[in-house]
Design a protein around this nucleic acid. Sequence first.
DNA 1: TTATCTGCAAAGAATTTGCGGGAGG
DNA 2: CCTCCCGCAAATTCTTTGCAGATAA
Lengths: 152, 152
Amino acid sequence: MESRVARLCIEKGLKMTEPRRVIARVLSESDDHPDVEALHGRVRDLDPTISIATVYRTMKLFEETNIVTKRDFGDGRARYEEILGDEDHHHHLIDVTTGQVMEFHNEALEALKIRIAQDLGFKLVDHHLELFGVPLNRDAKRDGDGGDSGGK
Amino acid sequence: MESRVARLCIEKGLKMTEPRRVIARVLSESDDHPDVEALHGRVRDLDPTISIATVYRTMKLFEETNIVTKRDFGDGRARYEEILGDEDHHHHLIDVTTGQVMEFHNEALEALKIRIAQDLGFKLVDHHLELFGVPLNRDAKRDGDGGDSGGK
DNA sequence: TTATCTGCAAAGAATTTGCGGGAGG
DNA sequence: CCTCCCGCAAATTCTTTGCAGATAA
């Protein structure tokens, strides 16, 4: 059966080739923020004949078709994630001590951003927010371990 | 006399070479978001012997020393801007029709972000926010033209 | 069929790095 | 002086592209 992303492709009138179907499946089953190399790795597990050039081409196509968005978390490469719908609009908090990325959603933030754009004379069409933080280490208070209280 | 950024370098104990002094001056006098190539162009106007490799190396050094931050506005290259202090923390709204970048600051947003990070168990150490928008075309309302009343 | 897509390898663009001479403290 | 820095050019890394054969509609 077609994956969620594959259905989106059909809906948008894209030609459904085998590589695209596989890439669509991988995207549908990923809930992290893979870069192209990681995507290619997962794609290869399903079909070793698919080249990384096709992954690049397909991600560009999917981006233009509003199926995925590109993200940048500071390292040099592009990361992708599926667009799930307005309700899902979320953002990222990156733990600078581990590099781990977590997602969050906040209504007040959504509203605030729209209003800020409006006040500046714009209609908001997209937005990226990344927070970088260090763990508050609740436990440290108890066992005094603490460790890296330093930043970046 | 030393530029603002040059003074920061000294304060942080960096060796002040001539190329660094020039790059520091350029940064101090820039209020936009130049990429490395643009920086190198401005630097060359002051001292044509400075190579782009040095600009890259220096920007990396300044970034590590928290003198500038790197930004990414969607095109492939890194952009830099001076860090002026907590009070100045601002964000960017990119006009997707022209690519023009404008800055804004919003207290409510600052507070909200800190709280969100806290709720997730983190202390906020940095954050990036970019809004992408299209102009609201105030005039359209008068001549009944556009009427883009909201739908995304 | 027929336009589009794909793999391959080569090309491009942005950024990094090794090296020997040069400069700052 | 002695270490760190710089210019140069070559090397890396990420991404794009030309081409000829393969494929979806």
